[in-house]
Design a protein around this nucleic acid. Sequence first.
DNA 1: CTGTTAGCGCTTTCAA
DNA 2: TTGAAAGCGCTAACAG
Lengths: 338, 338
Amino acid sequence: MVTIKDVARESGFSVSTVSRALADSDLIPKHSKTKIKSVVEKLGYIPNLTAKSLKNNKFYNFGVITFAGEELGFSHNLFSGILNNFINEIGKNKFDVTVLSKHLVDSGEDLVAYCKSRNLNGVFMLSGDFSNKEMKKLQSSDIPTVVVDGFKNDESDNSYYVSSNNREVMKKLTSLAIQKGHKKIVYVHGEDIYVTRERIAGFKEAIESAGMDFNPDMLVAGHYYDMSYVSDVIDGILTKEVVPTCIFMPDDFCAIKAYDVLHERGIRIPEDISIAGFDGLEYVKHIYPKMATVIQNVAELGKTCAKIMISLINGEEPQHLTLIGADIYNGESIRTIK
Amino acid sequence: MVTIKDVARESGFSVSTVSRALADSDLIPKHSKTKIKSVVEKLGYIPNLTAKSLKNNKFYNFGVITFAGEELGFSHNLFSGILNNFINEIGKNKFDVTVLSKHLVDSGEDLVAYCKSRNLNGVFMLSGDFSNKEMKKLQSSDIPTVVVDGFKNDESDNSYYVSSNNREVMKKLTSLAIQKGHKKIVYVHGEDIYVTRERIAGFKEAIESAGMDFNPDMLVAGHYYDMSYVSDVIDGILTKEVVPTCIFMPDDFCAIKAYDVLHERGIRIPEDISIAGFDGLEYVKHIYPKMATVIQNVAELGKTCAKIMISLINGEEPQHLTLIGADIYNGESIRTIK
DNA sequence: CTGTTAGCGCTTTCAA
DNA sequence: TTGAAAGCGCTAACAG
């Protein structure tokens, strides 16, 4: 390993002069810099950032945690897209990203200690775990956290939340179905977290502002990104005294499974029952019938989280909750009832 | 920040004794350890791994690069699953994982320098970029690299390759179609990399061992994980003088698009044309008709890569090429021709 | 303009 | 059984 010492010796300057030259300090004249840089080149010197960090007490490193409660990890189609954008934005700003493995989170190790021992400047959580103690401790620690999409919105001074404008977009989606003539709509919603409550609120608002009566039967509890329960839930809905004409699923992944189940039962989409998903995964636009869904702005979500992280370590005070606009994709899975 | 010095002062021992006690050294008697650990507890001391690393010249940190050539990053449905398993396996072994952003790779920065300055012990590449110079330099550097799935298999002493047993499984898939009565099969294959060549080889072998004539018309060039070219390619195939009864697509993602295109053209799957994908993404089992595909063993692929990385830094000499078995999922998209 | 020196937090030899 | 001291690679205050 070539160190700054080697460069100093070889170039005839002292270590501090070399350090300054490499930092492009005004104190060092051009000719010295040139000389030093040529030696750097010659020896193939590469500065050791670990040493630099230790000295400066600046670490330029964020952690990322992926939704500990699920098996999905990076395979979560929505979160992986958000993560992509987060990482690229962070990378543009010259920070590093360290991944905290699901194993680490599940093992019950002290997450705060883990992060501190690695000098992480902040942690990005792709959906908080809704039960994990360590995640909670991390959120209420002095390490800044930015949580996207799945969170409880517990107030914590040091935690920042980003999500789509779920209430508004769910209201839009519901209004669209109503406009198309649907009066009996069921919303299979996910876990009780902030985004779910918002979606339910938007759902209700649309129903009520259309002059219809909201009744609790319109809500059915499900889970996000979990196909296993879908056939039971769908069967339950099909045997209700009032069978809906339209079912909103918690997300596209579950909605695909709903397609499958309905197909097996000989029920046509959208002729017999209409379906909508949520998230806007690429492939739902290419299945038959093209699935109506909410397209979350994955790029904006990821970038926003990154910007908040960066502004935080710059000592700024961003908003604690940021909402990002989402769009409706009409598809063909919600029929028009005459 | 509480340092080892603080613990030393507070406990009345010297820094070195504290260090030894925390490393559970035999030199330190139980009562001293107990005393020291109680002070650690009291002060909330957390060891600084950066300092430790610097001192020991051990860094316990791997890099991960995601397929620079594409927009997908972590959204790549196959690679994200592999990555999941890689990270968890690495995490179990107490190493950290640092993400190298696509931005970093695209920007043309010196990747080797980047990795060295961060003291990365090795780099995991999810599909090599087939053109990127920096990626190549990295692979031929003294930093060990493990590449999964998309690679050229250029010989490099310090690069290790893992993929599914593509030749064998593609032979199986092709044989299955032949057995079902298909004689006119077209394989839309991906970029010219090792895995593609293997798949093509397996495809040929199946055709020839069935006593059929292989002809180059059976191969059509496409791309992996790219929907944009699919409709052109499909249209091209449909206007051939001999229209095939079965089309193999490069992957599930493209195959979904093929479903879409054929549907738009009024061509039924599998009655008119049979389709198969490749990779085994969860949702292809839930679309209609259920898509025949090759299920790559994502868990084994990821874990194997991790194990190779770890064995490398332990000074072992793993094989340079490791093949993992894959399975066929029959689905319903390859019809039986009587 | 440049060098000497101290020190970031930690481990480890050497000496007691 | 413990401590002093050196040093990992680097930066920066201070002194010239």
